[in-house]
Amino acid sequence: MLKNICTRTVIPVAIAVTGFVIVCCLLLYSMIREDMVKVSTIHGTNLADTLTRSARYSMLNDDREALNNLIANVGAQEEVEHVRIFNKKGRIAFSSETREVGRYVDKNAAGCIACHAGAVPKHTLEGMQQARTYENPQGEQVLAVTASIFNEPTCANGSCHVHDATQAILGILDVGLDQEPLRHALVTLRWRMTIFTLMILCLTIGGVVAILNLNLFVPFRRLMRFTEGAADGNIREDVPHLDGELGTLVEKICGIHEEQRSARQKVSILLSVTCINRRKELIGHFPNEFSENDFPQRLTCCYGERSNPLAPEDPGANSSL
């Protein structure tokens, strides 16, 4: 199969185009996914920041009911998986899931270990590090963002409840966002990119094959048929009209064939003449075709090595010529 010129031409083009388009699509997909996750994380961080600011007034006034309401309302949103506020010890004080209130969070959990890895916990983290992704018991992907509630002078000096001024962090707000819409968008994007890639591949490889077929493979096949015909001696039957290099090749083949045919005719005439003197006379008329040095070679060329007409009929003919 690989000896066929069409296959040999199309295979490298197909491998290169297919492979390169697939690589580009995979890289593009991974970059788009990264950007989308980044946007989602920024959205989560902003939401956590908004919540902290919204809860500030209620916390200063020790208005627990308003704070509970705020947490419950935000937690009721479809895209929010959970909202909770826990204190420095990890005890959950407010949560959208009421049964969680009073429990302790695990400091070694994925979102907490970033701050609690060392002996002294970190006070601040950059935006992207505040986020963690995990799978909830229902098997859904959740992006959780944590925001520290810092001890401000108004908190430490507040009349409602006393905080030590040296305590840097009063609590942590933890917001979990459902990543199902993002995952769904990524699946859709993957399908669209796959279809787009397949269309590009069909168009590119199809286009290359069509152009090669039109300009090279079809004329080449005609040339092959013509050459096979020429080898059998019926050159006049179907001379293809080809352009460019292939056309020149056809002309050259016709020229060679014509020369061979004329030489064959002359040899036939010569062989039909039995008189040695008449043969010599004929050779004298066609010095180029029947020169003494290359005449046997010409006969061999025209009739083939085994069927040299001079050999079986007249073994002494070469010497006589």
Binding site: P12, I15, A16, T18, G19, F20, I22, V23, L26, L27, S30, R33, E34
Partner: peptide, 17 residues
Amino acid sequence: IEHFWAVLAAGITILGL
């Protein structure tokens, strides 16, 4: 993990050619 398939596709293309 995210880029494994991209490197694999690149490798198969380049080494195939």
